[in-house]
Amino acid sequence: MKTLTQLTLALSVAVSGAAFASPEADQKAFQKFYESRFSQVAEGDFINGVYSILPAAREQWEAIEEFPPYEPEVEIGEELYNTAFANGKSFADCFDTPAQRENYPYWDADREMVVTMERAINECRTANGEKAWGWKKGKIAALSAYMSYESRGQEISVTIPEGDEGALAAYNAGKEMFYTKRGQLNFSCSDCHMYGAGLNARADTMSPAFGHASHWPVYRSKWQAMGTLHRRFGGCNTNIRAKPFKAQGPEYSNLEYFLTYMSNGLEFNGPGARK
């Protein structure tokens, strides 16, 4: 009985230790998990998602990348970036360069919220008297695609400012979202994209979460269009029959903050093309 009690106590301490570990320790354990499980993947290649672990599918994907389906959207995005608002200003007045991916997401201490690149795009519009675009597809995805394209090769380096309790709370909320089971199917993000990565769900292989945040927005064959990361989050939640949260709301913004921080050290390579 004593042994059982000690064992339970030790397990509780270990579990709570992992749940409340520092972001740095989390990141190290997260990346180590994938690097151990998929030791065949070359350093930095997790940015290619499921194609980093499936050589046969990679060949097809590389063929698709020769004439990338997101190319027209990148061109539309460039035009949007350079088109003046009604007040004569443009996105160039909000951003010093379109290559902005490396600056997002970040914790805005004044407003106590995570700011994503898509949020910054729409805030630029509303600050200049324009209507905000929808968050998931269409023009915001096109502009985001252009800006991501211009940002290719930038290093993912999200920071959780030291001593900022709000930033840590947002990070922890994103972490909880990632590991929490939801919906009638009772799945967490980690069930499919961590412990189930490389396994099949029906005919599809589940991708590793390490590198998940590197390549957005994405042209999905299923959508026949571009979509943002938050569109995909909502789709994943719907797939497991969980009511999705609002795109750019605190739940998905915090999840993006956590997920991108987990991929620190990799490169941004968006926009992407996926099934």
């Binding site: 579990v15 992992a18 749940a19 354990a29």
Partner: peptide, 15 residues
């Protein structure tokens, strides 16, 4: 599920 997951998600965090 919501009440239970409030605690049990912690077990899935890798160490």
């Amino acid at each position: 599920q919501g009440e239970n997951e409030g605690q049990s998600w912690e077990m899935r965090v890798p160490r």
